[in-house]
Design a protein around this nucleic acid. Sequence first.
DNA 1: AGATTTTTGTTGTAATTGCAATAAAAATCA
DNA 2: TGATTTTTATTGCAATTACAACAAAAATCT
Lengths: 150, 150
Amino acid sequence: MKEILREIGAIARALDSISNIEFKELDLTKGQYLYVIRICEHPGIIQEKVAELLKVDRTTASRAIQKLETKGFIEKRIEQGNKKNKLLFPTAKSMDIYPFLKREGEYSNARALEGFSNEEINCIHSLLTRVLHNIEIDWEEVKKGHKRQY
Amino acid sequence: MKEILREIGAIARALDSISNIEFKELDLTKGQYLYVIRICEHPGIIQEKVAELLKVDRTTASRAIQKLETKGFIEKRIEQGNKKNKLLFPTAKSMDIYPFLKREGEYSNARALEGFSNEEINCIHSLLTRVLHNIEIDWEEVKKGHKRQY
DNA sequence: AGATTTTTGTTGTAATTGCAATAAAAATCA
DNA sequence: TGATTTTTATTGCAATTACAACAAAAATCT
């Protein structure tokens, strides 16, 4: 069967590396842009869900969001009638840089898809969505300690 | 334009996370499996090329390979007539685990592509190869300090 | 209601990751 | 050939990343 994992890994690392370099001028360190974007787009989301969206460890998200709060990018609020969940909201500081983050992402996306027809773009999008769905299952299982047989 | 970066990022993190968990029993820590696989498949490759293949920073590759040498997975040799390049070779220890690493990768690949027709597999493979090629250019430019306009 | 399980969150520890800065060998140029 | 540039590799920081282990609130079960 044809291999797609290596390509995906290399593409992801390259794009992440580019973004990290480009967002350093915003005082965002490695990986932090991911959280800012998600929280801007899902105000009131909880940490657990952010980790799930991004496919990062819960403790990684915890520490990243802690830093973002300290730096004034994010605000944690406690919901009425629920003392466990901490709702995450972007501050003005985040909302100010959000358009820039968005534009960079769109530019990278356009660069990645350069030379693609509309049909091809729709195709790769839908295939990747299916891959993500397929792999989500194993990720959650393995994280929980389940052993895969191969 | 449809977005594919987030899917790629999430898929890559999920798969990497799975592999890291599954390879801990081989005494491989985070990310090390990538280097072992590449060096097994390209005996005599130099560090710089490994970093380029994987799209990681040169210094990251340097330290990862150092650790792998200390742990006995990799051997560095100096080429006759060239005192700069350090050629990388897998040791027996690496070659022994290589089939397992390969099998895990193939299994993840099969899981990721579950429900895909042969035609779809060929399609996503070829599209991803083109994306990687597109993005390679920007990665190298940005790493060198070039600023992208967007 | 009370016991159990699940969800959400944090810290301890140990490791990778990567930008700067540095060095030395090799390749290119004039 | 000698000077300059490029390639390859390393170390000093400073930061993220994530497995364990823990805690507490919420949800579920009986």
